[in-house]
Simulated assay, not measured.
Amino acid sequence: MEEPDKDHVDKILAQWRRERPELDVAAMGLLGRLGRLRAHIAREQETVFAKYELTSASFDVLATLRRSGSPFQLSPGELLAATMVTSGTMTNRIDQLEKAGLVKRLDNPEDRRGVIIALTPEGRQRIDAAVTAHVANQQRLVAGLESEERNALNALLRKFLATFE
């Protein structure tokens, strides 16, 4: 039986310490936990998104458009910058969302060769419902931490993320 406050990563670290005691595996523990948390959280989020016939990818595009404010339109380049995916991936996401009637392509009035991606009324309704459920799910997922712990973890993660961004 596992000790209280021990997790799967502790078992892995103990095995490495036994087999390679000269290695400092502290960073492995931190990054391993972040990776495992990311996988658990992603599964929980996908479950919520599926209730709205969305995936994390489609949610990301719709949410980016929604939070951009009225008229809920962005160029494909602006969507790319906000979502950090390749142009081919974004084109595929937009194609799928357009087929589902959640976004539409409009002529870009500032660039006759370009388009603007806009939320449709159905897309706005879907993302508004999904983001409400998503926020409630996120609150549920962090409920095991006290408010002070969430604040401290958030501050540390912000600092760590800043080293990459």
Rank of each mutant, 00 (worst) to 15 (best):
A42L: 15
E44Y: 14
E46N: 13
T47V: 06
T47E: 15
V48G: 08
F49C: 11
F49R: 09
K51P: 01
T55N: 08
T55G: 13
S56L: 10
S56H: 09
S58E: 11
D60G: 10
V61C: 13
L65K: 00
R66P: 02
R66G: 04
S68A: 02
S70G: 02
F72L: 04
F72C: 04
Q73E: 11
Q73V: 13
L74P: 03
S75W: 00
E78M: 00
L79K: 11
L80W: 07
A81S: 08
A82S: 12
T83W: 00
V85H: 05
V85N: 08
T89I: 07
N92D: 05
R93C: 09
I94T: 13
I94Y: 04
D95Q: 13
E98N: 13
E98W: 01
A100Y: 03
G101F: 02
L102P: 08
K104S: 04
K104A: 06
L106A: 07
P109Q: 04
R112S: 15
R113E: 07
I117G: 02
I117N: 00
P121V: 02
Q125V: 05
R126Y: 09
R126I: 01
I127S: 03
A133W: 12
V135Y: 05
A136V: 11
N137E: 14
R140M: 00
L141P: 09
V142E: 15
